[in-house]
Design a protein around this nucleic acid. Structure first.
Length: 272
DNA sequence: GGGCTCCTGGAT
DNA sequence: ATCCAGGAGCCC
C-alpha cells in the first residue's frame, strides 16, 4: 500500500528524527527479511535518508547503506525504549542520539518487503534501482511522459503502475489521477492524445502532491513512522468507492479488474 | 505483456 | 472455510 506519498512521509519523519543517530546495535528476528548480513551496521551513524520511487535508502557512515522496500504491509515505526514491538516485527535498530535512545522497528505481516545492506557505492547497482523509471515531481518531464505513453499499447493504468517506466505510482494514485484527467483505465496508452497525456501528467502531480500534504493514505494498513494514519483516504474520489456517486457527475463509481488489480473509475466521466 | 507467486489479516 | 488485497520478480 505505501506508494510515493506514503514512503515520502516516512522519509521526512526519519530525516527529522533519526538522522545523525548512532546505530548501537541490531536485533534480527527473521533473517530472511534481510538480503545480506546486517551485523556491519552496528557502530555506524545515520547520515541521510533518501527515497527512489517507493524505495527508502538510508545512508550510513563508512560507505554503508540500508535499502528498505515496504511493499504491501511493511512498516517502519519509531519507538521509545521499553515500548512493545508491533506484531510481525522482524528487525529492530537500536539508536542513540542526543534526544536519547530510540528503536527503529521494521515489521511486515505479509513479509513481501525486504532490506538490503550494502556499500553505498553499490546501491545504484541494485536491480530494482537500475531499472527504475523516472519519477513525477522529480525528473519526469511532460515530454518524457508523452514519449512513454506513445511507445506502448498497454492499458494506460497498467503503464502507470510499471515502476520501470514511471516510479512511485501505485494503485490508489493511478485510479485517482485517471479520474481527474477523465481517462478510462483500459485505454491503450498510445491512443491518448497529447492533450490527454498533458492532463494526466498534471493530475499525477496533483494527486501525489496532495497525498504528501495529507501525510499519505491509510485506507488499510499504512501507518507513518510515529504509528499515525495518513488522511488522504478521506479525500478519495474513486478509490474504494464502488457504487458511490462520482463527485463530478453522480454516476455510480464502477469497479473492474485490470492486470489483476482492483480498478475504480467513473463510467461516465471516464468514457472510452 | 499477461499470469502466477510470495504471505497473512480481514471480510464474507 | 474461502476469497481477496497488490508491489514487483519471475515465468513463458
Amino acid at each position: 500500500m505505501p506508494e510515493l506519498p506514503e514512503v515520502e512521509t516516512i522519509r521526512r519523519q526519519m530525516e527529522e528524527r533519526v538522522v545523525s543517530s548512532l546505530i548501537s546495535g541490531v536485533t534480527l528476528f527473521r533473517e530472511s527479511m534481510v538480503r545480506e548480513t546486517i551485523d556491519a551496521i552496528a557502530g555506524k551513524h545515520i547520515l541521510a535518508v533518501h527515497r527512489f520511487g517507493k524505495l527508502l535508502v538510508i545512508t550510513l557512515s563508512d560507505n554503508l547503506s540500508v535499502c528498505i522496500h515496504l511493499k504491501m504491509t511493511g512498516r517502519l515505526t519509531l519507538l521509545a525504549v521499553g515500548e512493545s514491538f508491533p506484531v510481525h516485527t522482524h528487525v529492530v535498530f537500536h539508536l542513540q542520539s542526543k534526544h536519547g535512545d530510540q528503536l527503529l522497528v521494521f515489521s511486515d505481516s505479509r513479509r513481501f518487503g525486504f532490506i538490503h545492506v550494502l556499500p553505498s557505492t553499490e546501491v545504484s547497482k541494485l536491480p530494482f534501482l537500475v531499472k527504475l523509471g523516472k519519477e513525477p515531481l522529480k525528473d519526469l518531464t511532460i515530454k518524457d511522459f508523452i514519449a512513454i505513453c506513445h511507445k506502448t499499447k498497454r492499458p494506460i493504468k497498467t503503464l502507470l503502475l510499471d515502476q520501470q517506466r514511471i516510479s512511485g505510482i501505485g494503485n490508489i494514485y493511478a485510479c485517482e489521477s485517471l479520474w481527474i484527467a477523465k481517462i478510462h483505465p483500459t485505454i491503450p496508452a498510445n491512443a491518448l492524445t497529447t492533450n490527454q497525456c498533458g492532463a494526466l501528467f498534471s493530475a499525477i502531480e496533483a494527486v501525489l502532491t496532495e497525498g504528501i500534504s495529507r501525510g499519505g493514505a491509510s485506507d488499510n494498513t499504512y501507518r507513518n513512522l510515529m504509528g499515525g494514519k495518513g488522511k488522504y483516504q478521506n479525500f478519495f474520489k474513486v478509490y474504494m468507492r464502488k457504487g458511490k456517486p462520482c463527485p463530478r457527475c453522480t454516476t455510480p463509481i464502477a469497479f473492474t479488474r485490470l492486470a489483476g488489480r482492483g480498478t475504480f473509475y467513473c463510467p461516465h466521466c471516464q468514457e472510452r
